[in-house]
């Protein structure tokens, strides 16, 4: 039996005051080094599912097991230890605009740093630490922005800083929430190459939400489809595209070459 890296059973997410669950009875298993795309219409609950996996969003019922440990019922301290191994690349980047780029990038190392080291780095970064940030930034083609103020970066550059932060974390699971939404097609491919190589070579598991069916098909052997909170399909590309289709679209209409659009989310008008 192959060890599962992530096992989700009957996960339901329903915050206070919400009538219908945002994620309903979601179950799936992920092996080390496996890469899956998570697709589904806007508002289907993809981001919420990722947030439940890293414990940012409390589960209403069901279980989330990460390397054999419960995420959903963890105490703050053990949840913190679990989270070191999970890197989230948030949909809106969620960087701190006032910090320098290298400070945002090395925030990924905070899980393994002592409090004293974390505070010292803010005021007095060592050359070795800066070199680590530099390496991560070079992987996303942002080497020259090491010392820039984060607020001065473009949307696509900020997205890549968030990816560099995840790389620095040295995780065993990456949760990437539309990591290429603000990138041009060339850069999008470069980032997907990077994430998928990481999964293949270093055994990092990867869950990646995407709005581009062709890229999902091309980069991911397995595709999970969400529809209003439920996992409806778990399999290859063809099945996934059915759910991706917007209501009102002709059943047999050929899908436009969505992968060529730099930002699917904008194209969908959401």
């Amino acid at each position: 039996m192959q060890a599962s890296m992530l096992r989700i059973d009957g996960l339901t997410v329903m915050p206070h005051g919400v009538k219908t669950p945002i994620c309903a009875d979601v179950s799936f298993v992920l092996r080390p080094g496996e890469r899956v795309a998570l697709v589904g219409a806007s508002g289907a609950g993809k981001t919420t599912l990722l947030r439940a996996i890293n414990g940012s969003m409390p589960a209403h019922s069901g279980t989330v097991l990460l390397n054999g440990m419960r995420v959903d019922t963890s105490h703050p301290r053990s949840l913190r230890r679990l989270r070191r191994t999970v890197a989230m690349i948030p949909q809106k980047h969620d960087l701190v605009p006032r910090l320098h780029v290298y400070q945002n990038v090395m925030a990924g190392a905070l899980g393994r740093w002592s409090a004293a080291r974390a505070l010292r780095f803010l005021l007095w970064p060592l050359a070795a630490e800066l070199a680590e940030a530099q390496r991560a930034l070079e992987q996303v083609a942002l080497g020259e922005k090491l010392r820039a103020r984060t607020a001065t970066l473009s949307g696509g550059q900020q997205q890549r800083v968030a990816i560099a932060r995840a790389l620095v974390q040295q995780p065993s699971l990456i949760l990437a929430d539309e990591p290429i939404a603000s990138l041009d097609p060339g850069m999008a491919r470069q980032v997907l190459d990077l994430l998928c190589t990481l999964a293949r070579d270093s055994g990092v598991a990867l869950v990646c939400t995407l709005h581009q069916p062709d890229l999902a098909e091309q980069y991911f052997p397995r595709i999970l489809t969400m529809e209003s909170g439920r996992l409806t399909k778990d399999g290859p590309y063809r099945l996934a595209t059915e759910a991706q289709r917007e209501p009102g679209q002709q059943q047999d209409a050929r899908l436009p070459p969505r992968g060529l659009m730099p930002d699917m989310k904008q194209a969908l008008g959401t």
Binding site: N54, S56, R80, R81, L82, R83, R84, T85, V86, A87, M88, P90, K92, D94, L95, V96, P97, R98, L99, Q103, A107, G108, A109, L110, G111, R112, W113, A115, A118, L119, L122, A162, R165, Q169
Partner: peptide, 24 residues
């Protein structure tokens, strides 16, 4: 959101305050 993002790296509460809450 940025506070949650830093906390999601497994950072200690002190580090979350120093790297996100304070600069924000």
């Amino acid at each position: 959101a940025p506070v949650l993002a830093v906390a999601a790296t497994g950072a200690r509460p002190v580090a979350v305050v120093a790297y996100a809450t304070l600069p924000l």
